[in-house]
Design a protein around this nucleic acid. Structure first.
Length: 288
DNA sequence: CAGGTATCCTGTCCGC
DNA sequence: TGCGGACAGGATACCT
C-alpha cells in the first residue's frame, strides 16, 4: 500500500475541514481503539491509554482553529484544549459521506454538520496527542519541528540544509524542515536539479537556495491540486487529490525522465526508495 | 556526527 | 486459486 500524507495532504485536510469545524461543538461518540500511539512512529514508545479520555479528545469543546506545522494538524478548542493529529502513513481525518467503515479509531459528532468527524488509520502509524493549552503546543512544536516547509521563507529553509549528511536525509528531517516526506523530497530535488545523495556541505549557496525554493514551489503546487492521492489519502471532505499527476520522479524508477528522456535511477537512501535523473540531477547540483 | 537497520502496522502485490 | 513473503514508509531507538 502506498499512501503518504505529507504537508500538502495535511494542508488540504485542514482547508477542507475548516468550514465544517470552526465554531462548531464536538462530542466524542465512539473510541474504537485505546491503544493508539501517543505519537506517530517509533517503537516501544508505549501505547497511551490513560489520556485517551473524552476530555483529551475534546469532548464538549467548541473548535476555534485548525493549525498546521509540517505534517501535524492541531485542533484548538475555545477552552484552550488542543488535540494534535498525525496521520502517519495511512491516517485520515475526515468529515463527509462515504467514509470507509473500517479502522475507525475515534468518531466525533459535530453539531450542525451532516456527518461525523472520523479519525481512521488502518496501519496505526499515526496518532493523536493532546495538549492542555496552546502554549504547550507551540513549545513542543518549536522543540521538535523546524520551520514549516510551505510557510517559511526560502532563505530560512536554506539555512537549515547544512552538515555532512545527504541533502535528501536533511529534507526528511522534520526537526530541520517540517513537512517534507519521501514523495516531495524526490520531487523537489528533481525540480532543483540536485542529486539526492549530495552532502549538504557540497552544495553552494545558490544551489541550496534553489532547493529551498523548489521545496516551496513543489509543495505549493501540490496544495493547489488538493494533495496526492496514491491510494488511501482523501481530503478532509473525503475527496481524492490530483497532485499525483504532477509527480515527475516518485515511483518512476526505470522509466524515462520527463525532461531529458534518460532512464530514471532508483536506489535506497536511508531505507527509503529514492528516484532521480542522473542526467538532470548531477552531484552538487546543476549549474544555474 | 552520519548512516544503516530494526521496529511498529496492515494492505497489496508478486511469484510459485 | 491460494498462500507466504517482500514491500511500502513516518518516526524513533539502537548500533556501527
Amino acid at each position: 500500500m502506498r499512501t503518504l500524507p505529507e504537508l500538502p495532504e495535511i494542508e488540504s485536510v485542514r482547508r477542507a475541514l475548516a468550514p465544517v469545524l470552526l465554531g462548531r461543538a464536538v462530542r466524542v461518540v465512539r473510541v474504537g481503539r485505546h491503544d493508539m500511539r501517543a505519537r506517530g512512529g517509533g517503537r516501544g514508545d508505549g501505547r497511551a491509554r490513560a489520556w485517551m479520555k473524552r476530555d483529551a479528545l475534546l469532548h464538549g469543546a467548541t473548535i476555534t482553529s485548525l493549525e498546521r506545522r509540517g505534517k501535524r494538524l492541531a485542533i484548538i478548542a475555545a477552552d484552550g484544549r488542543v488535540l494534535v493529529v498525525q496521520l502517519g502513513m495511512s491516517g485520515q481525518l475526515v468529515c463527509g459521506p462515504g467514509i470507509d467503515p473500517t479502522h475507525r479509531h475515534v468518531e466525533w459528532a459535530v453539531r450542525h454538520a451532516g456527518h461525523p468527524l472520523v479519525f481512521r488509520d488502518p496501519r496505526r502509524f499515526g496518532g493523536l496527542t493532546p495538549y492542555p493549552d496552546a502554549r504547550s503546543l507551540y513549545a513542543a512544536w518549536d522543540r521538535e519541528l523546524g520551520p514549516d516547509a510551505l510557510e517559511a521563507e526560502a532563505t530560512a529553509l536554506a539555512a537549515r540544509l547544512r552538515g555532512l549528511r545527504s541533502v535528501k536525509s536533511a529534507l526528511l528531517d522534520q526537526a530541520a524542515i517540517a513537512g517534507v516526506g519521501n514523495i516531495y523530497a524526490d520531487e523537489a530535488l528533481f525540480r532543483a536539479g540536485i542529486d539526492p545523495r549530495t552532502r549538504c556541505r557540497r552544495l553552494d549557496a545558490a544551489a541550496v537556495l534553489r532547493l529551498a525554493e523548489s521545496v516551496r514551489s513543489t509543495l505549493r503546487d501540490a496544495v493547489a491540486h488538493g494533495g496526492s492521492t496514491i491510494r488511501d489519502y482523501r481530503t478532509g471532505r473525503n475527496d481524492r487529490g490530483r497532485a499525483q499527476l504532477l509527480h515527475a520522479v516518485y515511483g518512476r524508477a526505470g522509466e524515462p525522465c520527463l525532461a531529458c528522456g534518460s532512464k530514471l535511477r532508483g536506489t535506497r537512501l536511508g531505507g527509503r526508495a529514492t528516484v532521480w535523473c542522473g542526467c538532470c540531477q548531477p552531484a552538487g547540483g546543476r549549474r544555474a
